[in-house]
């Protein structure tokens, strides 16, 4: 027998394609939004789009296991959107993004937002060529989520704690969730928001603008 060392993550081929896509995504800030089902990904996109509209051009890729409901919500707020149905698959992969950008004019977009499939496990393993992974955590789902899904928080650069309008009615506390998230990843930028009331969204949007400016400055 001949033993051949490989020493790679099994998703290596996806990562190579993602790196290629990243090299093509110049001047556009790409966000990969990851969260469990119903945490508020689409709501965050709607808020972000509506409030940035007029100042920044946004394009959206919607991942969904079966339906086009979320893509319709995005189209309703007037943004170019491409829908990827994963046929039940639990995450998006780089080759799906490659196909989606063929149908979407990202060349003159400022921000490309990808809504991943609702799942906190697998999407973190599949790089999509994004600049930033954003994990959205819904407060009523429990403030221990970062400890239960450390992979997502470990690989993200930003965590959006959503549904803080419900805090008075539940045991989970945004401060505890923040603390748990920082234990997993001290470098995380954390935003406490309510997509329903709009609270905290401005701080999040300032951060997105700042990241876009940083990316463009680095590109020269």
């Amino acid at each position: 027998m001949v033993n051949i060392p490989v020493l790679k993550e099994v998703t290596e081929a996806n990562t190579i394609l993602a790196d290629y896509l990243r090299s093509r995504f110049t001047h556009v800030l790409v966000l990969n939004v990851i969260a469990s089902p119903g945490a508020g990904k689409t709501s965050l996109l709607e808020r972000t789009i509506t409030q940035l509209n007029g100042t920044l051009k946004i394009a959206v890729i919607e991942g969904d296991p079966t339906t086009s409901i979320d893509a319709e919500r995005i189209a309703a707020v007037g943004m170019p959107v491409v829908q990827i149905n994963t046929q039940g698959g639990c995450h998006l992969e780089a080759r799906q993004i490659q196909r989606a950008v063929e149908q979407l004019d990202v060349a003159d977009a400022d921000v490309l937002i990808i809504e991943n499939v609702g799942n906190l496990l697998c999407p973190t393993e599949w790089d999509l060529g994004e600049d930033i992974k954003v994990v959205v955590a819904s407060l009523p789902e429990g403030d221990d989520k970062p400890l239960k899904y450390p992979g997502a928080f470990l690989k993200a650069q930003a965590a959006v704690i959503n549904k803080i309008d419900l805090e008075p009615y539940i045991a989970a506390k945004a401060a505890t969730m923040r603390e748990n998230a920082l234990k997993i990843n001290p470098g995380l930028a954390i935003f406490e928001v309510s997509c329903t009331t709009g609270e905290g969204i401005d701080v999040w949007l300032d951060w997105v603008r700042q990241k876009l400016a940083e990316k463009r400055a680095a590109e020269g």
């Binding site: 001949v2 033993n3 051949i4 490989v6 020493l7 993550e9 099994v10 998703t11 290596e12």
Partner: peptide, 8 residues
């Protein structure tokens, strides 16, 4: 989840 090596 990593692939360490293969025997061929």
């Amino acid at each position: 989840f990593g692939l360490v090596s293969i025997d061929v």
